[in-house]
Design a protein around this nucleic acid. Structure first.
Lengths: 260, 260
DNA sequence: AGATTGCTTTTTGCATACGAAAGTCTGTAT
DNA sequence: ATACAGACTTTCGTATGCAAAAAGCAATCT
């Protein structure tokens, strides 16, 4: 019977911008909820993004940062009350999360945070690698000297972060570099696809907290060189090797942590 | 003001199984609507699939077969009345169609059938080719003798259809062969991704009504041979060439029909 | 004539309500 | 003590209702 407005399975101080807006009295709940939810992402849109968009982002964030755990049953009304909206936008957000693979919707039972298997994680990783390899090829064909300059900037940042042993910075720099290459491909469909897959891959493998060291950044340097020379085949080949090594590293790391 | 229950922009005899169920009197509309909509796909599910699933399939079909034209504004209540359900399941189906790229949802304006640009179509085709090339590689690594036998069956069917000059049969055989290879890859994530992309590619290029002739099937034969030998690199290489030629053929065909 | 403002109509977005299905618990019979 | 039946509870799925945004339209002003 949904005691108080609280969200049962969440820590009291959850990581949402404005959790648990109380919907006081007669005011307009929609307006209030929208104000509270539509932070960063929604603000720059001309026409206010619908509530469901904000709900989608909030839920995705809760899943990615593991406030909502894999396998957990998501009860619509609890999510709704937690976010200060009705069930409807929550449902629509869950629909979208399902098609993107973040939750499973079981008929007449509701939504469950998707639990990835090792197999599925590996398959996604493979697909990402293939797509990234292709994006490197295209990037080599399209990159301008300014683009290469930017690549080298990102590369330097990564190496610096590595030297400073700042793991978080290394991860960020690595993501930035790879993302930039996907965008250089000029194929927006491809870039978006990689972004989507990559987000799930990171989610799956995040618990491993793995970063490859200097080797990875040497490989980056070679890839950038190939892009600079416009050698598409070589850029593609090197990216293929690079991502494949990352994949192997994940496997070894996982097997090691599983057997202990 | 929504005269009669009709769907304004559709021909009277639309291509849905049971259009315009009247919802007579006091009965249970949900049950009735479900019965009428849940043809083929939904029937085999144990627990009855939700209405939104049937609505999704119906709408996707209407879009793919171009009853609903690119750019057309989809008014929720018209779709709802046409299908004999309320707006809610329609909304949820539209959500899903958006994430899959079939419709664009403009805030406060509703759904519009997505209009593909030449550029987007080509990008999708490129991505599909890359993924299919990879799937051929994996297929060569996994295929059993029985699988190869099945491949050859499909190949023979295609060649026979070609000889009979039955375009529709050729298209079907071609799709079946490619699909089977993606499944042989053993990577379900990959296979589903290809299926999704492929469906949109076919939609975009369908107006061209293009089929490559004997060459394509010779290439198929070579690919199957490589898979049979377990030669992953060769299968991959050949599939890459094959899909690339298909892409070129599309381009030439399109440019020809555009300039006339 | 063309642009502009204010009103009306249409359509979306969200909230609420209700019936139905799945899950849970309790009591009884064996 | 355990297994089964039935009522009870929870939660979903869909329908309906209502406020607000957008689109259309007409009268007015320049």
């Amino acid at each position: 019977m949904l005691m108080s407005g609280h969200f049962r399975h969440l820590p009291e101080e959850a990581t949402v911008s404005q959790p648990n807006v109380p919907l006081i009295g007669a005011g307009n709940p929609r307006r209030a909820a929208r104000e509270s939810l539509s932070s960063a992402a929604a603000r720059k849109v001309e026409r206010p993004a619908p509530l469901r968009q904000a709900v989608y982002e909030a839920l995705l964030d809760l899943i990615v940062n593991r406030t909502l755990k894999p396998g957990q049953h998501l009860v619509e009304i609890e999510l709704a009350e937690h976010l200060g909206v009705s069930r409807q936008p929550v449902r629509e957000a869950l629909q979208r999360l399902q098609t993107e693979g973040w939750v499973d919707l079981r008929p007449a039972q509701g939504a469950f945070v998707h639990t990835p298997t090792d197999e599925e994680a590996d398959q996604l990783l493979s697909v990402r690698n293939v797509l990234e390899t292709y994006s490197a090829k295209l990037a080599a064909q399209h990159a301008t000297p300014e683009d290469v300059e930017q690549l080298e900037k990102l590369q330097n940042e990564g190496v610096a972060a590595l030297k400073a042993k700042d793991v978080e910075r290394v991860v960020a720099a690595n993501a930035a570099l790879h993302t930039f290459i996907t965008q250089l491909s000029g194929n927006t469909v491809l870039a978006e696809m990689i972004a989507t897959v990559d987000r799930r891959v990171r989610w799956y493998y995040a618990p491993l907290a793995l970063t490859r060291g200097k080797d990875a950044w040497n490989e980056h340097a070679d890839i950038i060189a190939a892009i600079n020379e416009g050698d598409a085949e070589r850029a593609s080949l090197l990216m293929g090797r690079h991502t494949e090594r990352t994949r192997t590293a994940y496997h070894e790391h996982r097997d090691a942590s599983q057997s202990k």
